[in-house]
């Protein structure tokens, strides 16, 4: 309870000082950007979902419908040269770094235009040029890797930070604990973000975790403050992100943030989510970040045509990207044999 109090203590303080309207500490520009990012994530993911059912995308895919405010809030708070590390549920975090929608949709469709040349797919989306340093499909692996990227920033004194996103289930794997301890003792500029959507996969996280708040309640073990944020409110997310990034950039070391949220879809494409208690989804749909944020913008006095204009532009961009991806050829066969080694090839012998 004491840890929860920490979070509560912080939130009112910033509210009292800053929430004066559209042009408060966040400001109109950031808000419109977060509106756009949330819409991009939502519409791209829905498009991916549709393409699955047209059998144009194979394999698996883990959607984050309902969790868009987290990636949008953090994404808007990042510098272009910061690093993002995310999981197999990583369409959102990669997209908010400004990567190409065509590259992403094309990658899932297995096309030549795919951002990974058709060699990674949904679970490994990466765009190094945008600081999206990879989507990691083995739970926990990217937490120490993010620490390593932060080490580079610290070593070269670049002022960059690494933001590392993961789910609630990750808090029970060893790498989570190794990475947090490591980041703290080396005082690394890394921000760990646990998106607690209540389910590790199919099993409620509460059934398999010793503490109520899987990340926040463990923060104290590593000497970190316990931070919980409403993961369906992009503004709230933006504020904690900014604070954690500032701390990291100024040599204050790592942070661990738990963002409460809910995924509207199942764990993966194969999961209808039938294990959820009746009415739970409906309750969370009422807190859907996107209609909420739209209403907030209108309440702040942003004109309807501006709000809708952004949404129309996003939908058009998604449509165009979809058509481009569909029109792209399949990857040339030689792609199968390239990029194992730095010389571009795959030979293991002379």
């Amino acid at each position: 309870m004491a840890k929860k109090a920490t979070a509560k203590k912080k939130a009112p303080a910033s509210k009292a000082k800053n929430r004066a309207g559209l042009n408060d500490d966040i400001g109109e520009e950031n808000r419109l950007r977060m509106w756009q990012l949330q819409l991009e994530v939502r519409h791209v993911e829905q498009r991916l979902h549709d393409l699955f059912f047209q059998n144009l995308i194979k394999g698996t895919s883990h959607l984050a419908l309902g969790q868009e405010a987290i990636s949008a809030g953090f994404g808007a708070a990042m510098r272009p040269d910061d690093y993002t590390f995310c999981t197999y549920r990583g369409h959102a975090h990669t997209l908010v770094r400004g990567t190409s929608m065509t590259g992403m949709i094309g990658e899932l469709m297995g096309k030549e235009c795919g951002m990974l040349k058709g060699k990674g797919g949904s679970m490994h989306l990466t765009d190094v040029s945008k600081g999206a340093m990879g989507s990691y499909a083995i739970i926990g692996a990217h937490l120490p890797i993010a620490a390593g990227a932060a080490w580079q920033a610290q070593y070269n004194n670049t002022g960059q930070i690494a933001a590392c996103f993961f789910g609630d289930g990750t808090t029970n794997i060893g790498a989570f604990h190794e990475a947090l301890n490591f980041a703290v003792i080396w005082n690394l500029p890394v921000v760990y973000v646990c998106e607690n959507n209540l389910y590790m996969e199919y099993t409620p996280i509460s059934e398999v975790t010793a503490v109520e708040h899987p990340a926040a309640d463990r923060a104290g073990a590593y000497g970190l403050p316990s931070i919980i944020v409403d993961g369906n409110d992009a503004d709230a997310v933006f504020r904690v992100a900014t604070e954690a990034f500032d701390k990291a950039r100024s040599g204050g070391g790592p942070s661990l943030i738990e963002a409460k949220t809910y995924r509207h879809s199942g764990h993966s494409r194969a999961d209808p989510g039938t294990y959820r208690p009746e009415g739970e989804l409906e309750e969370w749909l009422k807190k859907d970040p996107i209609p909420m944020y739209r209403q907030r913008l209108l309440d702040f006095g942003v004109k309807e045509d501006v709000v809708s204009g952004i949404e129309d532009a996003v939908l058009q961009a998604v449509d165009e990207a979809t058509e481009e991806a569909k029109a792209s050829p399949t990857p040339p066969m030689e792609y199968a044999y390239t990029d194992v080694w730095a010389d571009g090839g795959s030979s293991w012998r002379n």
Partner: peptide, 24 residues
């Protein structure tokens, strides 16, 4: 740099540093 007994952290950190420009 000395590290804790955390082999995943050691190799993970080495990888993250390598992919961002160091030669660990």
């Amino acid at each position: 740099r000395d590290t804790p007994i955390s082999e995943q952290a050691i190799l993970g950190a080495a990888m993250g540093a390598a992919m961002t420009g160091l030669r660990p």
